[in-house]
């Protein structure tokens, strides 16, 4: 298809416009799209802009006031600053702004939880947690069988493991 504007070059850009529910379509080549202002390299479509775009929908005034006073008590990053430059200030920011971040993660990554690599220190912790879960299941079972002596043993084992990882 040829460009609607110059009628010479191949159209590579397809623009659909809706004005008052009236649909109009335009097929342009790259050069004409640039010249007619439909394509602008300076728009700089970067992730940064994407984040600040997602974070800056038109909020109602009440929310705005609440947000403007939010800040991380660990590093002092104000939520307003994050909205502007799209960068977290420290590890704590992630818990402080968790509610705000969750929908953002969904939009960026289509997911809210990590399933990849885990640091060794964390891995040990997770292994112990798994062991505890297993023992707890076993304990339930022996209680059902009224084997209380064995249940008491298991309870002590669980207690030891929980102490090891400092869990409540």
């Amino acid at each position: 298809m040829l460009c609607d504007n110059c009628k010479k070059r191949e159209a590579t850009i397809h623009i659909t416009k809706y004005i008052d529910d009236k649909k109009s379509e335009l097929y342009l080549c790259e050069k004409c799209a640039r010249e007619t202002g439909h394509l602008n390299d300076n728009d700089g479509f970067t992730f940064q802009n994407l984040i600040t775009g997602i974070l800056n929908p038109d909020l109602n005034d009440l929310n705005k006031i609440k947000e403007s006073s939010m800040e991380c008590n660990n590093c002092g990053l104000a939520y307003e600053k994050f909205k502007r430059n799209g960068k977290m200030g420290c590890a704590e920011c992630y818990s402080k702004f968790e509610n705000k971040l969750r929908p953002l993660m969904k939009k960026i990554h289509g997911s809210e939880s990590h399933i990849g690599k885990v640091p060794q220190s964390e891995k040990n912790y997770l292994d112990v947690k798994k062991d505890i879960e297993k023992l707890k299941a076993k304990m339930e079972k022996v209680i059902e069988d009224e084997n209380f002596e064995r249940a008491a043993q298991l309870r002590d084992e669980i207690y030891e493991l929980e102490k090891k990882i400092g869990s409540e």
Binding site: I51, M88, L104, M105, I108, H114, E122, L126
Partner: peptide, 16 residues
């Protein structure tokens, strides 16, 4: 590192 969000990065686009 967070169990939920993985490796924490300055920019959320690198998270996980």
């Amino acid at each position: 590192f967070s169990k939920k969000w993985g490796y924490l990065s300055a920019c959320p686009t690198n998270l996980g």
